[in-house]
Amino acid sequence: MENQVSHALAILEEPVQYVCLLFMASMYAIKIYQLVKKPFPPERAELKGDRTAGVIQSMANIFRPWGMESSRKNLYFYTEFMIFHIAVALTIGSTFFIPLTPQLMTPTVSAVIMVFMGLAFLIGLRRIYRRLTAPEIRIISAPDDYFAIILMTVFFAVGFVTMYLWIQGKPETGWMWVFFLMTTFFLIYVPFSKISHYVLYPFGRYNFGMVFGGRGVLNRASHDLSWDPKLRK
């Protein structure tokens, strides 16, 4: 596919995006710095388990729906979660692929991305409904939570239509403008919103893996009697 667009849209698609991306990266760098400069709680006890293995398992938690009861018992929710987040990655990715490597955005690739966007849009609608109606979710929801999910859902809808028009050979449409304006907004807004949770995610999982991996709670086979270092030899 070719990306023949006006000079104005080209500016929005590339330099503006890069500046915003740089801004986002700087904000994340500050956020991460503020977190890692805090001390990690010490663990001077003789470990029962392997902290590194714990961290690896904890980090891989996202691909282990059986690892947590909350996902094991809600596989539908977990599947939604996976589709939604794959769609996020693909949608953000397409904002780079379209201007930079338009040849990669073949009708097939674009169609696959569209499928994910469409599904993510429906999931987004369901998540908004859930947040509004499930009492245990509603009670913990702040405006930021609603705004984030609504924003993402609209983004998927816009992305879906944009991609459809792109497949039709229409690289410069009003939808494409909205799509890239939204992306620009995201890059600036996300570091201040709950959507930035993906930056904190590895830290939370790392902390969990360190604490519970070291204590031998993770990676423990049920028949494993290696709880006593003496018997381990």
């Binding site: 977190l35 805090k38 001390p39 990690f40 939570d145 709950k194 949770h197 904190l200 902390n207």
Partner: peptide, 13 residues
């Protein structure tokens, strides 16, 4: 500390 701060900042509701 890092665990407490990440736990306070990290909840996505």
């Amino acid at each position: 500390n890092r665990v407490v701060a990440a736990s306070l900042a990290g909840c996505i509701h």
